[in-house]
Structure formats: structure tokens, C-alpha cells
Amino acid sequence: MDSFIQQLINGITLGGIYALIALGYTMVYGVIQLINFAHGEFFATGGYVGVICLSFFTGLGYMETHPIFCLTASFALAMMYCAYLAIGVEKIAYKPLRKESRLAALLSALGVSIFLSNGLMLTQGVYDKAYPSELFQNGFNVGIITISYLQILIVCLTAVLLVALNLLVFKTKIGMAMRATAQDKTMSALVAIGSNRIISLTFAIGAGLAAAAGIMVGLYYGSVRYDMGFLPGIKAFSAAVLGGIGNITGAMLGGLIIGMVEIFGAGYISGEYKDVFAFIILIGVLYFKPTGIMGENIDDTRV
């Protein structure tokens, strides 16, 4: 039982990270029906900007005196950097192809993904970059269950970001504009919603969330490397499909399910098949409900 709860905590932590990345896929798909395969690379870039900022702060000695400030600043910088990177990528690689077939944009996305990950390799090197912070490395024990402060930080931050995103999409004017664009670009243009601006914003938000996930992964696992975006990218994409691509709540749910299944599969059946279990669930759900758990829908919950 103790180890069940421990595995549950592990699963929530991993699932939260997948959920944050999955949101980017699902939001972009919702607005322009494009699977942005370069999304995993925004996640990796976020992790790298984080390690650069935190190393810089540690070098100055601020990390000792103002840890909270340094973390906040690193998160803000990484999220902003990735947001602008995503806007740039969209303008260069996707916008000119918006009128072409969807396949063209998809290939362009794959190209951007390879370009960004190799760019990271060439500029940052092939070696792992270690996160400087030993902060939150400790934890506390409840019985034999160990919870690290980092796990708490990750779960809390993920929850805050998810709630903030929900508020943004469903309670603000910008969110309404996003939902309108997702439903009908021409119609929303008629009521004076600039679709280009909304699409940029969607990319920016998705990439910002991925960047936050990147730093959290870096802090949690202690290091980042240039190819870190690939596997979580694939998992998060599966999570988005599982939850129903285009649906925000679905992406969150999908991320949590994939994370949980992976951890429990590895914990109770066998570690070598954990990815298999995640995909069995995916295939099972898609077999009975091809639109995913929450379903890709046309009503106003889609972004």
C-alpha cells in the first residue's frame, strides 16, 4: 500500500509534466488544425534557457540569497523566450503554408523540429547540462513514502498554470476570441478578431507552458540535454490525442492518464513495457471512441 501511494505521487508528477506539454499540441491543433511536431523542441529550449539563467544567478551568488526570485525570473525568461521563438517559428514555417494542404505544414513542422534540436546540439553541445540548483533536492517522509519538495513544487505549479489557462480561455475576452477563431476564422474576422494575432498568441501560450515544463523537468531530473524534447513530445502528443485533440481539459486528463499508466505499468508489471501500456490504453480508447476521451468537439470548449 505504501509503495502504491508512492507510485501514485510519481505518476501525478510525471502526468503533470505531460499535461503541460500536451496543452501546446492541443491548443495549436484547435486553432489551425496543425500537429506542431516542433513543440517538443520548445520544451527542450525552455529547459536550456532555464539552466543558463539559473547558472548565471548561481554564479552571481543570488541563488543563495534570493532563491525564489531567481526561480521566478528563470521561469519568466524561459517562458518568454520560448513564446517569442514559437511566434517566430509560426511566422516563418507555418504561416506561408496556411493556404496549402495540411500535409505541407506537417512536414514543415517536422523540419522545424529537426532544425531546432540540431541547433541546440550545435550551440549547447552534446553533453548533458547539469542544473546548478540543489534547492528542493530534499524531501520529507510520511511512513516509508518519500515526497520531495520538488514534486510538490511541480504539482502546485502545474495546477496553477492549468487553472490560469482555463481562466484565460473561458473567462476573458482574449479567450473568447481564441475560441471564436477556432470555430470559424472567416466569421471571427468579420467581427474584428485578427486571426493572425490570435494564432500567434496560441503558439506563444503553448510554447510558454512547454518551457515551464522544460525547467521543471530540468530541476526534477537534475539535467537537460539537446534531445530531451523528442520522447516527452511524442508522449504528450499521445496524451493530447487520448484526451481528444483540440480539447484543453482532454489534454490535461490525457497527460495524467499517460503518466499514471506509465508509472503503474513499470511499477507493477514490468519496467521494459511501460511505454507499451501507455499506447495500449491509447489504442483501446481510440478504438471505442475515435475522437478521444473528451472528444474533439465543435462547441465552444474547443480552442
Binding site: S3, N10, F264, G271, K274
Partner: peptide, 17 residues
């Protein structure tokens, strides 16, 4: 066993613990 390229080993380490 774990997989090549894994980053998260929490499940198997819980078993070790």
C-alpha cells in the same frame, strides 16, 4: 529493465526501495 532514453526511473526505484 528500463528503456533507452528514459528520464524517469521513479517507478522502478520505488520497487528497489
Amino acid at each position: 529493465h528500463v528503456n533507452q532514453g528514459d528520464k524517469d526511473f521513479s517507478a522502478v526505484l520505488t520497487k528497489v526501495k
